[in-house]
Amino acid sequence: MNKIMWFALLVLLLAVAAASCLKRNALHPRLRANASVTHEVPMAFCNGLVRLGYDPRSDGTPAYYDNRTGELLVDCAGLLTNLPPEQRPVCPPPEWTCDK
């Protein structure tokens, strides 16, 4: 590759890395301190909430947190258990309106 293509590739990689860091820095400090929340964990923000661990290409189940407090709102892994329907969590929570 020529120098311009290498430079463009480097700029693209740096932009992706910076975006990942910015997203992680937008998390509530309690969520950022969680060892399981790494740069590889898919995350999305909506109406003061954060969804962690959801990737439509895999079968990972999301958890929804209040990003203002760091409190867990609902862990959707309960949907995969043998709980009766009335005991299963509502996923996504009603406050999450970005994917509807």
Rank of each mutant, 00 (worst) to 15 (best):
residue 86 E to Q: 10
residue 86 E to G: 06
residue 13 L to H: 08
residue 34 N to T: 03
residue 73 L to A: 04
residue 8 A to K: 11
residue 8 A to V: 14
residue 59 D to F: 13
residue 66 D to P: 04
residue 37 V to G: 01
residue 47 N to G: 05
residue 40 E to Q: 12
residue 73 L to K: 11
residue 49 L to N: 00
residue 83 L to C: 01
residue 55 D to F: 11
residue 90 V to N: 11
residue 85 P to N: 06
residue 4 I to D: 13
residue 7 F to T: 13
residue 93 P to M: 08
residue 70 G to I: 05
residue 99 D to Y: 02
residue 3 K to L: 14
residue 86 E to V: 07
residue 24 R to S: 05
residue 86 E to R: 10
residue 100 K to A: 09
residue 93 P to Y: 05
residue 33 A to D: 07
residue 39 H to C: 09
residue 11 V to Q: 03
residue 78 G to T: 05
residue 52 L to D: 04
residue 58 S to N: 11
residue 11 V to D: 03
residue 95 E to G: 10
residue 50 V to C: 03
residue 44 A to M: 06
residue 7 F to E: 12
residue 90 V to R: 14
residue 82 N to W: 10
residue 46 C to F: 06
residue 81 T to G: 12
residue 4 I to R: 15
residue 52 L to N: 00
residue 28 H to S: 00
residue 32 R to N: 08
residue 67 N to H: 09
residue 91 C to M: 03
residue 66 D to G: 00
residue 73 L to M: 09
residue 47 N to V: 01
residue 16 V to P: 00
residue 35 A to C: 08
residue 44 A to E: 15
residue 37 V to D: 01
residue 27 L to F: 01
residue 17 A to H: 07
residue 20 S to G: 12
residue 38 T to P: 07
residue 61 T to G: 02
residue 100 K to Q: 15
residue 73 L to D: 06
residue 54 Y to C: 03
residue 73 L to I: 15
residue 9 L to P: 00
residue 77 A to M: 05
residue 12 L to R: 02
residue 84 P to S: 12
residue 94 P to I: 02
residue 16 V to W: 09
residue 23 K to A: 09
residue 21 C to V: 14
residue 91 C to A: 05
residue 43 M to L: 15
residue 31 L to F: 02
residue 51 R to S: 08
residue 21 C to L: 13
residue 36 S to M: 09
residue 2 N to K: 10
residue 19 A to E: 09
residue 95 E to Q: 15
residue 15 A to N: 11
residue 90 V to P: 05
residue 93 P to K: 05
residue 88 R to Q: 15
residue 25 N to D: 12
residue 34 N to D: 15
residue 1 M to E: 06
residue 35 A to D: 13
residue 99 D to A: 13
residue 4 I to W: 04
residue 46 C to T: 07
residue 28 H to L: 03
residue 71 E to R: 15
residue 79 L to R: 08
residue 12 L to T: 10
residue 45 F to Q: 02
residue 72 L to M: 09
residue 70 G to H: 02
residue 39 H to G: 13
residue 28 H to A: 04
residue 38 T to M: 10
residue 43 M to E: 08
residue 90 V to H: 14
residue 71 E to C: 04
residue 24 R to V: 10
residue 30 R to Q: 12
residue 64 Y to V: 05
residue 76 C to P: 07
residue 6 W to N: 14
residue 96 W to Y: 10
residue 17 A to Y: 04
residue 81 T to Q: 13
residue 71 E to W: 02
residue 72 L to R: 11
residue 80 L to D: 14
residue 6 W to K: 14
residue 68 R to I: 00
residue 70 G to K: 07
residue 25 N to V: 03
residue 5 M to Y: 13
residue 91 C to V: 06
residue 41 V to Q: 08
residue 97 T to I: 05
